Simulated assay, not measured.
Amino acid sequence: MAENGEPLLNKQEHHENCEACKIEKLKESSNGIPLKLLFLVWIVTLAAALPISSLFPFLYFMIRDFGIAKREEDISYYAGYVGSSFMLGRALTSLLWGMVADMYGRKPVIIIGTVTVVIFNTLFGLSVNFWMAISTRFLLGSLCGMLGPMRAYAAEICRKEHQALGMSVISTSWGIGLIIGPAVGGFLAQPAEKYPHIFSRESLFGRFPYFLPCLVISIFAFVTVILSYWLPETLHMHGEKNIGQDVKEAALESNMDEPIGSQKTEVSVLSSCVPQKSLLKNWPLMSAIIVYCVFQLHDMAYSEVTS
């Protein structure tokens, strides 16, 4: 065995065509903070956070204009369905998007999520009835599952001593999005009534009074889609065969003085070192998830009760 006790996987060679290997090499050669990448992470997270709360200032009036509520007291009842449909879709698909990010990479999930904001947030602003509004919000939440992969991405681009900073960038951008989002919705909704000297009632924004704030956020998300192409992939994409070969080479180099039989045994163990323990039995992980769920329940309940 290696005398220094270091993991054998640390000795694998970097592949020139793998962006994740380039990131690992950059982290090994530099002790600095990847400010450029963290800035892009901040922008992408902001684009995902803006649509969440931007509808709350005008949701009451939107439901009223749909005419689905027979009494004024019923408007908040239908508004609750539209507001919660986004998080319902996200809750149903977040684990799936995490699995997709682990299989095919973080970057595709990030791009799909931002494109989803562009499409379905725009369609929400063009909603003409209650069912169109609730379906577009549900699809927006279901297909925009990049918050989890973004946290993994922020951790993977930073050295171990800077990973807390990467997580803070995600949380800061998320919080700013929850502040700016309602401001955009409040200032830009019903522009024909608030700014009649700029927008006429016969214009597009007069016929769709809640389209302007959604359009502004969608334009920002479109710019984010373009910027996302400069994000390097952090998931190693050179296949299990190459990774297994690297493990075998590292094992053989560190065990030259041991018998051949023990080398083969250790290589076989390293090659099958996938954790078999169920995540549900990992109490430190599950306790962190439960605490985070309670926090998010309080956070979203505070936002939802406003409308």
Rank of each mutant, 00 (worst) to 15 (best):
V291Y: 04
M87I: 09
L235I: 10
P196T: 07
Q190C: 06
G98N: 06
Y292W: 10
F56S: 03
A91K: 01
L59F: 05
S168F: 10
P191F: 00
H238P: 05
F124Q: 14
G141D: 05
K241V: 14
E193P: 03
G181L: 03
F39K: 14
A189F: 00
L231I: 06
S54H: 00
L9H: 11
K70V: 13
A2K: 15
L227Q: 04
G67S: 13
S287E: 04
F66Q: 15
D102T: 05
F120W: 07
R201V: 04
L280C: 10
P196Q: 06
M62S: 10
N121P: 00
R207S: 04
H15F: 00
I112Q: 12
Y229H: 02
I176P: 12
V118W: 01
S84T: 12
T116M: 01
P182I: 12
L59I: 05
N255C: 08
K107H: 11
N10Q: 14
L46E: 04
N255G: 10
A155K: 13
L147K: 14
M62A: 13
N255T: 12
I110Q: 05
Q163K: 15
S127G: 15
C144R: 04
R71K: 13
G166M: 06
S303Y: 01
S29T: 11
P232E: 01
I243A: 15
V44C: 04
